[in-house]
Design a binder for these strands. Sequence first.
DNA 1: TACTTAACCAAGAAGTTTAGTCAACTATTG
DNA 2: CAATAGTTGACTAAACTTCTTGGTTAAGTA
Lengths: 152, 152
Amino acid sequence: MKLTTKGRYAVTAMLDLGLRYGQGAVTLADIAQRQGISLSYLEQLFAKLRRTGLVNSVRGPGGGYTLSKEPSEISVAEIILAINENIDARRCAGKADCVGGDRCLTHELWEELSERIHEFLSGITLGDLVNQPIVQEVASRQEGRVRLALSQ
Amino acid sequence: MKLTTKGRYAVTAMLDLGLRYGQGAVTLADIAQRQGISLSYLEQLFAKLRRTGLVNSVRGPGGGYTLSKEPSEISVAEIILAINENIDARRCAGKADCVGGDRCLTHELWEELSERIHEFLSGITLGDLVNQPIVQEVASRQEGRVRLALSQ
DNA sequence: TACTTAACCAAGAAGTTTAGTCAACTATTG
DNA sequence: CAATAGTTGACTAAACTTCTTGGTTAAGTA
Protein backbone atom coordinates (compact mmCIF):
# COMPACT_ATOMS: atom_id res chain seq x y z
CA MET A 1 0.00 0.00 0.00
CA LYS A 2 1.53 3.20 -1.17
CA LEU A 3 -0.13 6.56 -0.76
CA THR A 4 1.02 9.36 -3.04
CA THR A 5 -0.44 12.14 -5.16
CA LYS A 6 -0.83 9.60 -7.95
CA GLY A 7 -3.47 7.79 -5.94
CA ARG A 8 -5.03 11.10 -4.99
CA TYR A 9 -5.43 11.93 -8.67
CA ALA A 10 -6.93 8.55 -9.44
CA VAL A 11 -9.43 8.75 -6.58
CA THR A 12 -10.42 12.30 -7.55
CA ALA A 13 -10.96 11.29 -11.17
CA MET A 14 -12.94 8.21 -10.20
CA LEU A 15 -15.04 10.31 -7.86
CA ASP A 16 -15.77 12.61 -10.80
CA LEU A 17 -17.12 9.55 -12.62
CA GLY A 18 -19.02 8.50 -9.53
CA LEU A 19 -20.79 11.84 -9.34
CA ARG A 20 -22.02 11.34 -12.91
CA TYR A 21 -22.89 7.67 -12.58
CA GLY A 22 -25.90 6.77 -14.71
CA GLN A 23 -25.59 9.89 -16.84
CA GLY A 24 -23.64 8.39 -19.71
CA ALA A 25 -19.93 8.44 -20.58
CA VAL A 26 -17.63 11.17 -19.29
CA THR A 27 -14.62 12.26 -21.36
CA LEU A 28 -11.17 12.53 -19.88
CA ALA A 29 -10.98 16.06 -21.29
CA ASP A 30 -13.89 17.05 -19.05
CA ILE A 31 -12.31 15.46 -15.99
CA ALA A 32 -9.00 17.11 -16.82
CA GLN A 33 -10.67 20.50 -16.99
CA ARG A 34 -12.76 20.09 -13.85
CA GLN A 35 -10.10 18.53 -11.65
CA GLY A 36 -7.05 20.31 -13.00
CA ILE A 37 -5.19 17.15 -14.01
CA SER A 38 -3.30 16.88 -17.28
CA LEU A 39 -5.16 14.92 -19.97
CA SER A 40 -2.25 12.68 -20.89
CA TYR A 41 -1.60 11.81 -17.31
CA LEU A 42 -5.25 10.87 -16.92
CA GLU A 43 -4.93 8.67 -19.98
CA GLN A 44 -2.13 6.75 -18.31
CA LEU A 45 -4.08 6.33 -15.12
CA PHE A 46 -7.25 5.26 -16.92
CA ALA A 47 -5.34 2.75 -19.01
CA LYS A 48 -4.58 0.97 -15.74
CA LEU A 49 -8.08 1.44 -14.37
CA ARG A 50 -9.48 -0.05 -17.56
CA ARG A 51 -7.05 -2.98 -17.46
CA THR A 52 -8.18 -3.86 -13.96
CA GLY A 53 -11.81 -3.57 -15.00
CA LEU A 54 -12.81 -0.66 -12.79
CA VAL A 55 -14.02 1.43 -15.74
CA ASN A 56 -15.48 0.82 -19.17
CA SER A 57 -14.59 2.91 -22.19
CA VAL A 58 -16.59 4.02 -25.21
CA ARG A 59 -14.80 5.44 -28.24
CA GLY A 60 -15.84 8.06 -30.67
CA PRO A 61 -18.09 11.11 -30.30
CA GLY A 62 -20.26 10.91 -27.22
CA GLY A 63 -17.79 8.40 -25.83
CA GLY A 64 -15.73 8.46 -22.69
CA TYR A 65 -15.50 6.45 -19.51
CA THR A 66 -18.05 5.02 -17.09
CA LEU A 67 -17.70 3.09 -13.86
CA SER A 68 -18.01 -0.63 -14.44
CA LYS A 69 -19.83 -1.09 -11.11
CA GLU A 70 -22.00 0.98 -8.82
CA PRO A 71 -20.06 3.66 -6.89
CA SER A 72 -20.96 1.87 -3.67
CA GLU A 73 -19.15 -1.21 -4.93
CA ILE A 74 -15.82 0.47 -5.73
CA SER A 75 -13.50 1.01 -2.78
CA VAL A 76 -10.75 3.57 -2.52
CA ALA A 77 -8.30 0.71 -1.92
CA GLU A 78 -9.20 -0.88 -5.25
CA ILE A 79 -8.43 2.33 -7.09
CA ILE A 80 -5.10 2.87 -5.40
CA LEU A 81 -4.01 -0.71 -5.96
CA ALA A 82 -5.07 -0.52 -9.60
CA ILE A 83 -2.88 2.47 -10.41
CA ASN A 84 0.07 1.42 -8.29
CA GLU A 85 0.03 -2.21 -9.38
CA ASN A 86 3.24 -2.76 -7.46
CA ILE A 87 3.45 -6.30 -6.24
CA ASP A 88 6.13 -5.12 -3.78
CA ALA A 89 8.11 -8.04 -5.07
CA ARG A 90 11.33 -7.24 -3.22
CA ARG A 91 10.76 -10.07 -0.79
CA CYS A 92 14.45 -10.61 -0.10
CA ALA A 93 14.57 -12.95 -3.06
CA GLY A 94 17.47 -11.08 -4.58
CA LYS A 95 19.11 -9.82 -1.38
CA ALA A 96 22.30 -11.46 -0.17
CA ASP A 97 21.93 -10.33 3.45
CA CYS A 98 18.65 -12.10 3.88
CA VAL A 99 20.13 -14.94 5.92
CA GLY A 100 18.06 -16.98 8.32
CA GLY A 101 14.85 -15.30 7.27
CA ASP A 102 15.37 -12.29 9.49
CA ARG A 103 14.74 -9.56 6.98
CA CYS A 104 11.75 -11.37 5.60
CA LEU A 105 10.12 -11.23 9.01
CA THR A 106 10.58 -7.50 9.44
CA HIS A 107 9.06 -7.16 6.00
CA GLU A 108 6.10 -9.18 7.11
CA LEU A 109 5.72 -6.95 10.11
CA TRP A 110 5.35 -3.89 7.96
CA GLU A 111 3.10 -5.73 5.62
CA GLU A 112 0.74 -6.43 8.46
CA LEU A 113 0.55 -2.72 9.11
CA SER A 114 0.08 -2.13 5.41
CA GLU A 115 -2.68 -4.69 5.41
CA ARG A 116 -4.57 -2.87 8.10
CA ILE A 117 -4.40 0.33 6.10
CA HIS A 118 -5.69 -1.61 3.15
CA GLU A 119 -8.60 -2.90 5.22
CA PHE A 120 -9.38 0.65 6.25
CA LEU A 121 -9.40 1.99 2.70
CA SER A 122 -11.39 -1.01 1.53
CA GLY A 123 -14.15 0.18 3.82
CA ILE A 124 -14.56 3.49 2.02
CA THR A 125 -16.36 3.38 -1.31
CA LEU A 126 -16.96 5.98 -4.01
CA GLY A 127 -20.60 5.79 -2.97
CA ASP A 128 -19.69 6.89 0.54
CA LEU A 129 -17.74 9.82 -0.84
CA VAL A 130 -20.46 10.83 -3.29
CA ASN A 131 -22.94 11.04 -0.43
CA GLN A 132 -20.81 13.34 1.65
CA PRO A 133 -22.22 16.88 1.82
CA ILE A 134 -18.89 18.53 1.07
CA VAL A 135 -18.52 16.50 -2.13
CA GLN A 136 -22.04 17.39 -3.22
CA GLU A 137 -21.11 21.03 -2.70
CA VAL A 138 -17.99 20.79 -4.85
CA ALA A 139 -19.90 18.96 -7.54
CA SER A 140 -22.61 21.59 -7.87
CA ARG A 141 -20.02 24.34 -7.88
CA GLN A 142 -18.14 22.58 -10.65
CA GLU A 143 -21.33 22.14 -12.68
CA GLY A 144 -22.01 25.83 -12.24
CA ARG A 145 -18.60 26.72 -13.51
CA VAL A 146 -19.06 24.61 -16.61
CA ARG A 147 -22.46 26.18 -17.36
CA LEU A 148 -20.93 29.59 -16.93
CA ALA A 149 -18.10 28.75 -19.32
CA LEU A 150 -20.56 27.43 -21.91
CA SER A 151 -22.76 30.50 -21.79
CA GLN A 152 -19.90 32.87 -22.49
CA MET B 1 0.20 11.51 4.76
CA LYS B 2 2.54 9.69 2.47
CA LEU B 3 3.40 6.02 2.80
CA THR B 4 6.61 4.86 1.14
CA THR B 5 9.61 2.67 1.86
CA LYS B 6 11.23 5.64 3.55
CA GLY B 7 8.63 5.52 6.29
CA ARG B 8 8.95 1.77 6.45
CA TYR B 9 12.67 2.11 7.15
CA ALA B 10 12.06 4.74 9.81
CA VAL B 11 9.42 2.67 11.59
CA THR B 12 11.60 -0.44 11.48
CA ALA B 13 14.58 1.44 12.91
CA MET B 14 12.47 3.04 15.63
CA LEU B 15 11.04 -0.37 16.48
CA ASP B 16 14.59 -1.62 16.86
CA LEU B 17 15.11 1.13 19.43
CA GLY B 18 11.79 0.29 21.06
CA LEU B 19 12.82 -3.34 21.52
CA ARG B 20 15.91 -2.16 23.43
CA TYR B 21 14.20 0.56 25.41
CA GLY B 22 15.74 0.93 28.87
CA GLN B 23 18.90 -0.93 27.86
CA GLY B 24 21.06 2.07 27.01
CA ALA B 25 21.95 3.71 23.71
CA VAL B 26 21.85 1.80 20.44
CA THR B 27 24.27 2.65 17.64
CA LEU B 28 23.11 3.21 14.10
CA ALA B 29 25.74 0.72 13.00
CA ASP B 30 23.92 -1.99 14.97
CA ILE B 31 20.55 -1.05 13.54
CA ALA B 32 22.04 -0.94 10.05
CA GLN B 33 23.40 -4.47 10.49
CA ARG B 34 20.27 -5.94 12.04
CA GLN B 35 17.72 -4.35 9.77
CA GLY B 36 19.71 -4.30 6.55
CA ILE B 37 19.53 -0.54 6.06
CA SER B 38 22.54 1.46 4.94
CA LEU B 39 24.23 3.37 7.75
CA SER B 40 24.36 6.70 5.90
CA TYR B 41 20.71 6.52 5.03
CA LEU B 42 19.89 5.86 8.66
CA GLU B 43 21.95 8.92 9.58
CA GLN B 44 19.75 11.05 7.34
CA LEU B 45 16.58 9.62 8.82
CA PHE B 46 17.76 9.98 12.40
CA ALA B 47 18.84 13.56 11.83
CA LYS B 48 15.15 14.29 11.22
CA LEU B 49 13.96 12.11 14.07
CA ARG B 50 16.33 13.95 16.38
CA ARG B 51 15.21 17.36 15.12
CA THR B 52 11.59 16.52 15.89
CA GLY B 53 12.57 15.26 19.33
CA LEU B 54 11.55 11.62 18.91
CA VAL B 55 15.03 10.36 19.80
CA ASN B 56 17.94 11.49 21.95
CA SER B 57 21.55 11.03 20.92
CA VAL B 58 24.67 10.33 22.95
CA ARG B 59 28.08 10.82 21.38
CA GLY B 60 31.28 8.98 21.90
CA PRO B 61 31.98 5.36 22.86
CA GLY B 62 28.97 3.68 24.39
CA GLY B 63 26.86 6.31 22.68
CA GLY B 64 24.06 5.97 20.18
CA TYR B 65 20.35 6.73 20.09
CA THR B 66 17.52 6.19 22.54
CA LEU B 67 13.82 6.89 22.33
CA SER B 68 12.97 10.20 23.99
CA LYS B 69 9.66 8.80 25.27
CA GLU B 70 8.26 5.43 26.23
CA PRO B 71 7.52 3.18 23.23
CA SER B 72 3.84 3.29 24.12
CA GLU B 73 3.90 7.07 23.69
CA ILE B 74 5.36 7.14 20.18
CA SER B 75 2.90 6.53 17.37
CA VAL B 76 3.69 5.27 13.90
CA ALA B 77 2.12 8.44 12.52
CA GLU B 78 4.59 10.63 14.41
CA ILE B 79 7.51 8.75 12.91
CA ILE B 80 6.22 8.96 9.37
CA LEU B 81 5.41 12.66 9.67
CA ALA B 82 8.85 13.33 11.17
CA ILE B 83 10.76 11.86 8.25
CA ASN B 84 8.43 13.13 5.55
CA GLU B 85 8.10 16.64 6.97
CA ASN B 86 6.10 17.61 3.93
CA ILE B 87 3.66 20.37 4.72
CA ASP B 88 1.84 19.51 1.49
CA ALA B 89 1.87 23.22 0.87
CA ARG B 90 0.57 23.08 -2.70
CA ARG B 91 -2.77 24.42 -1.66
CA CYS B 92 -3.50 25.96 -5.07
CA ALA B 93 -1.60 29.04 -3.96
CA GLY B 94 0.55 28.92 -7.07
CA LYS B 95 -1.94 27.37 -9.49
CA ALA B 96 -3.61 29.54 -12.11
CA ASP B 97 -6.54 27.20 -12.66
CA CYS B 98 -7.69 27.40 -9.07
CA VAL B 99 -10.63 29.68 -9.85
CA GLY B 100 -13.63 29.87 -7.58
CA GLY B 101 -12.06 27.64 -4.94
CA ASP B 102 -13.02 24.46 -6.75
CA ARG B 103 -9.70 22.68 -6.66
CA CYS B 104 -9.16 23.67 -3.09
CA LEU B 105 -12.27 21.75 -2.13
CA THR B 106 -11.24 18.56 -3.86
CA HIS B 107 -7.95 18.90 -2.08
CA GLU B 108 -9.76 19.18 1.20
CA LEU B 109 -11.72 16.10 0.37
CA TRP B 110 -8.57 14.05 0.00
CA GLU B 111 -7.11 15.64 3.05
CA GLU B 112 -10.05 14.40 5.05
CA LEU B 113 -9.27 10.90 3.87
CA SER B 114 -5.63 11.48 4.64
CA GLU B 115 -6.59 12.69 8.06
CA ARG B 116 -8.45 9.50 8.81
CA ILE B 117 -5.41 7.46 7.85
CA HIS B 118 -3.41 9.68 10.13
CA GLU B 119 -5.84 9.01 12.96
CA PHE B 120 -5.52 5.32 12.31
CA LEU B 121 -1.72 5.36 12.40
CA SER B 122 -1.78 7.59 15.45
CA GLY B 123 -3.54 4.77 17.24
CA ILE B 124 -0.65 2.37 16.73
CA THR B 125 2.37 2.92 18.98
CA LEU B 126 5.80 1.35 19.09
CA GLY B 127 4.67 -0.18 22.36
CA ASP B 128 1.85 -1.98 20.57
CA LEU B 129 4.26 -3.34 17.99
CA VAL B 130 6.85 -4.39 20.57
CA ASN B 131 4.22 -6.46 22.33
CA GLN B 132 3.21 -8.36 19.24
CA PRO B 133 4.34 -12.00 19.33
CA ILE B 134 5.74 -11.92 15.80
CA VAL B 135 7.94 -8.95 16.67
CA GLN B 136 9.22 -10.66 19.79
CA GLU B 137 10.10 -13.64 17.62
CA VAL B 138 12.06 -11.54 15.14
CA ALA B 139 13.84 -9.76 17.95
CA SER B 140 15.07 -12.91 19.65
CA ARG B 141 16.16 -14.33 16.34
CA GLN B 142 18.11 -11.16 15.60
CA GLU B 143 19.77 -11.28 19.04
CA GLY B 144 20.67 -14.88 18.38
CA ARG B 145 22.26 -13.98 15.11
CA VAL B 146 24.37 -11.28 16.75
CA ARG B 147 25.53 -13.65 19.48
CA LEU B 148 26.42 -16.20 16.87
CA ALA B 149 28.42 -13.65 14.89
CA LEU B 150 30.28 -12.54 18.02
CA SER B 151 31.20 -16.08 19.08
CA GLN B 152 32.76 -16.91 15.77
C1' DT C 1 -16.58 9.31 -48.02
C1' DA C 2 -14.67 12.92 -45.24
C1' DC C 3 -14.57 14.87 -40.84
C1' DT C 4 -14.66 15.02 -36.01
C1' DT C 5 -14.39 13.08 -31.61
C1' DA C 6 -12.18 10.78 -28.10
C1' DA C 7 -10.02 6.58 -26.62
C1' DC C 8 -5.53 4.33 -27.08
C1' DC C 9 -0.47 4.06 -27.37
C1' DA C 10 4.58 5.07 -27.02
C1' DA C 11 8.64 7.66 -26.22
C1' DG C 12 10.72 10.56 -23.49
C1' DA C 13 11.63 15.13 -20.88
C1' DA C 14 11.71 17.40 -16.47
C1' DG C 15 11.53 17.26 -11.86
C1' DT C 16 11.45 15.01 -7.41
C1' DT C 17 12.44 11.35 -4.22
C1' DT C 18 15.00 7.48 -2.68
C1' DA C 19 18.96 5.38 -1.33
C1' DG C 20 23.48 5.54 -0.83
C1' DT C 21 28.60 7.28 -0.90
C1' DC C 22 32.36 10.08 0.66
C1' DA C 23 34.73 13.13 3.46
C1' DA C 24 35.35 16.00 7.07
C1' DC C 25 34.32 17.49 11.77
C1' DT C 26 33.08 17.39 16.88
C1' DA C 27 32.23 15.47 21.37
C1' DT C 28 33.08 11.70 24.55
C1' DT C 29 35.37 7.94 26.72
C1' DG C 30 39.41 5.39 28.22
C1' DC D 1 46.22 11.12 22.87
C1' DA D 2 43.53 7.56 20.40
C1' DA D 3 39.37 5.33 19.43
C1' DT D 4 34.52 5.67 19.15
C1' DA D 5 30.42 7.43 17.41
C1' DG D 6 27.43 11.18 16.37
C1' DT D 7 26.96 15.35 13.09
C1' DT D 8 27.04 17.70 8.86
C1' DG D 9 27.22 18.62 4.02
C1' DA D 10 28.00 17.82 -0.71
C1' DC D 11 27.26 14.78 -4.16
C1' DT D 12 25.42 10.86 -7.19
C1' DA D 13 22.86 7.01 -9.40
C1' DA D 14 18.60 5.09 -9.87
C1' DA D 15 13.78 5.11 -9.56
C1' DC D 16 9.50 7.23 -9.69
C1' DT D 17 6.18 10.91 -10.70
C1' DT D 18 4.19 14.13 -13.53
C1' DC D 19 3.62 15.93 -17.74
C1' DT D 20 4.42 16.63 -22.91
C1' DT D 21 4.49 15.49 -27.68
C1' DG D 22 2.91 13.13 -31.44
C1' DG D 23 0.83 9.97 -33.16
C1' DT D 24 -3.05 5.56 -34.19
C1' DT D 25 -7.45 3.68 -34.11
C1' DA D 26 -12.51 3.20 -33.53
C1' DA D 27 -16.92 5.22 -33.71
C1' DG D 28 -20.15 8.31 -34.72
C1' DT D 29 -21.89 12.45 -37.92
C1' DA D 30 -22.43 15.56 -41.98
